[in-house]
Design a protein around this nucleic acid. Structure first.
Length: 421
DNA sequence: TCTGGGGTCCTAGGACCC
DNA sequence: TCTGGGGTCCTAGGACCC
């Protein structure tokens, strides 16, 4: 038996948390660069705003209905996420953090009769300790728990729903809303006469494995209540990507190299946090695919490192080498990014037989990197960085973030002040 | 003017091995 | 006429998730 805890309109709920006057106001949160809608409060959903709508296309609705708009504030959402996960983990041992706003619990060690009550208590506790409303779905497989959560939110408007003895709900759920069925598969299933979650649970699993793949077979079995996907403990990432669209299109090499250097630093930071070294590095660059009036260009390149490393100087140097290979003058670039791959544990590094780097070099690099990490941890990200990231205050490639809320919970200067009379 | 970022898994096909 | 059987590794592309 599984439960899935899923925050309601997570980013929108976070923005509301320190701004209670917005309790009834429609809210949307935009993606990086203030590009698309990625979160909506219930009021905004009711006004017909869709996930992924480009902001510039919905601006008229924003004005018409006085919708409150926020740029995404991941430092804030990430911190709220940690708080929620801490509440869950300290109240239940078998939890799996599944995404920034979701966690699975394995309930097998609790008697069936207590599942619903336990989750109701947990739901209240999260609300009380963090201020964020969550919904919990319960079922005999992860897929059914997700489905129960969907029913709780969309149909019942209830905080907790246990689908175990209420399987008739499967007939109410469109097959495209099933966890693991995306747009393409949803359409293909419709063409095969499968329209609801119930329909899918009744098809012959082996036939559909042939028509799709083994993931489809598992989803079918899971819908029947046969659990095929267990709780997974968090593994280190196998690859780490850092990329962003520019605030304005870029044509020159230098600002793009600056942006790339800053993403490289970000990628290294993430990689060092999980204790890995990169064995491969690749860089990609592309123009804006939506601009039909400008020539399109997209290219990537990369290479294998002889010595896996987590030294930001080395990785930045190699990244810029890659960029030099693929940069062409005359294009309007929209995005650049770096990918660190074949990550290995930094304690299991296999040294190269023909390694020219001495042990002292390595030791010094390790120490230097640790000092950088420590300084930035103490004085804030970016307190110290490579000059390659740029030293001018004006960075034309920086993303737009026009409507960003304060870092309420992660920055001393942004902590809200409350006056009591 | 304006359209996100970061991941994982699976399959097919080609190259290669004995 | 007829052309083995069994395997690994790599890559590209497509699908999915949040």
């Amino acid at each position: 038996m599984y439960a899935i805890v899923d925050a309601n309109n997570f980013y929108a709920s976070c923005e509301r948390l320190f701004n209670p006057t917005l309790a009834k106001t429609p809210i949307v949160v935009l993606s990086n660069n203030d590009g698309c809608v990625i979160a909506r409060s219930n009021e905004a959903k009711a006004l017909g705003l869709k996930m992924g709508d480009p902001y510039f296309q919905i601006k008229h609705l924003v004005n018409k209905h006085a919708i409150k708009v926020f740029s995404s504030n991941y430092a804030f959402y990430g911190d709220m996420s940690n708080r929620i996960m801490t509440v869950l983990e300290s109240n239940w041992p078998e939890t799996e953090v599944y995404s920034i706003d979701e966690a699975f619990l394995c309930l097998n060690s609790l008697p069936q009769s207590q599942h619903t009550f336990f989750c109701e208590q947990l739901q209240k506790k999260v609300r009380q300790y963090t201020g964020i409303p969550v919904s919990i779905g319960i079922g005999p497989s992860k897929t059914l728990a997700k489905l129960a959560n969907h029913v709780a939110k969309k149909q019942l408007k209830a905080p907790v729903f246990n689908i175990t003895s209420e399987r008739q709900w499967l007939q109410q759920i469109e097959v495209g809303d099933v966890w693991g069925i995306g747009r393409k598969w949803g359409q293909k299933l419709n063409r095969l006469g499968v329209y609801t979650a119930y329909d899918l649970s009744m098809v012959e699993a082996r036939t559909f494995k042939r028509k799709f793949n083994v993931i489809m077979e598992r989803t079918i079995l899971e819908l029947r209540g046969i659990s095929c996907i267990a709780i997974e403990k968090s593994e280190p990432k196998k690859e780490i990507v850092s990329s962003k669209s520019f605030g304005q299109l870029q044509t020159e090499f230098n600002p793009i190299a600056e942006a790339l250097s800053s993403y490289a630093a970000r990628a290294v930071e993430k990689m060092r946090k999980q204790g890995s070294l990169a064995s491969t590095i690749s860089v990609f660059i592309r123009t804006n695919p939506f601009r039909k009036d400008l020539p399109y260009y997209s290219k990537s390149t990369g290479f294998q490192l002889i010595n896996p490393t987590d030294d930001v100087r080395a990785i930045t140097k190699y990244a810029k080498m890659c960029l030099r290979q693929i940069y062409r003058q005359g294009y309007h670039y929209k995005k650049v990014g770096i990918m660190l791959g074949e990550l290995i544990n930094n304690t299991q590094c296999q040294f190269n037989l023909f390694d020219s780097q001495s042990d002292e070099d390595k030791e010094q690099s390790d120490k230097l990197m640790q000092v950088l990490t420590d300084i930035n941890h103490k004085f804030g990200r970016h307190a110290i960085h490579l000059a390659a990231e740029g030293v001018n205050r004006y960075q034309p490639w920086k993303m737009r973030s026009t409507f960003k809320s304060p870092h309420y919970t992660t920055n001393w200067h942004d902590i809200p002040v409350v006056y009591a009379n």
